[in-house]
């Protein structure tokens, strides 16, 4: 972009404005890419086209990296270590433990009452003690031990490779689901889970025994982040 050409440009612009197209002029003067313009109106139009093309491609290249690595998603992709579920997942597991226990407690109580009413006798005291002790132990287990263990044993990692999950207390399992094998993704949230802002992420693959791999206890934002990122990648896969 030497001086001479620049001067020529200005002259061209003036000529163009004389020709009546003031729109072109204003656009052109504000544009820095008009370096290889010739004398005529025709070439002016050509270069303008070229410059708009250039700027549009710039736009694209400006958008592309943004789509690939949106700032919000970087936190997920850059995971190197497996992490625990959302802190509130533990509370959620406890609440669901309490609900399950409540159901068992109700059934046990009703069962006992119905049994002894139908037998028309009072239950022996030791049976009541055993039942209460059993239920107490079950309550302790279902509300305290199991949710804590479950939380401690569940870890996940989502990175460039895909989703890696480890879970299970007695039967421990680790799943590795590569990104390219994910067919579709579900993020679900039950009413109770909504209360704790927790979601269940389900990855579906074309496999058989692990056709869907699910992870309950991610924060809803995280689950959506992962889903969105997999969706973007799917879009690029398709192209």
């Amino acid at each position: 972009m030497n001086q001479k050409e620049d001067n020529e440009n200005r002259r061209d612009n003036r000529q163009a404005s004389k020709g009546g197209s003031s729109e072109v002029q204003t656009e052109q003067t504000s544009n820095d890419h008009s370096s290889n313009q010739q004398g005529s109106n025709e070439s002016l139009m050509q270069t303008q086209q070229a410059s708009t093309n250039q700027s549009s491609s710039l736009d694209q290249s400006g958008q592309m990296p943004e789509q690939e690595k949106p700032p919000a998603k970087q936190s997920v992709t850059q995971m190197t270590e497996s992490v625990f579920l959302a802190a509130k997942a533990k509370n959620y597991f406890q609440i669901s433990g309490i609900i399950s226990f409540a159901i068992i407690f109700l059934m046990a109580t009703i069962g006992t009452v119905v049994l002894f009413v139908s037998l028309l006798t009072l239950p022996p005291w030791w049976l009541i003690v055993i039942e209460v002790l059993l239920l107490a132990w079950l309550a302790y287990f279902m509300i305290s031990v199991y949710p804590t263990k479950k939380y401690q044993r569940t870890k996940w990692r989502f990175d460039e490779q895909g989703l890696y999950i480890q879970q299970g207390i007695w039967w421990r399992k680790q799943y590795a689901v590569p990104r390219s094998r994910v067919q579709h993704i579900d993020v679900t949230q039950g009413p109770l889970q909504r209360n704790y802002n927790i979601a269940q992420l389900i990855l579906h693959t074309a496999g058989t025994m692990n056709a869907s791999v699910s992870l309950t206890g991610l924060s809803h934002e995280k689950a959506v982040e992962i889903r969105d990122e997999l969706l973007i990648q799917e879009k690029y896969d398709a192209v």
């Binding site: 299970g168 007695w170 039967w171 421990r172 399992k173 680790q174 799943y175 590795a176 689901v177 590569p178 094998r181 693959t205 074309a206 496999g207 025994m209 692990n210 791999v213």
Partner: peptide
């Protein structure tokens, strides 16, 4: 052709 990999540990 592998869809996913699993590691299992029973008691």
């Amino acid at each position: 052709k592998i869809q996913s990999v699993e590691l299992r540990e029973n008691p």
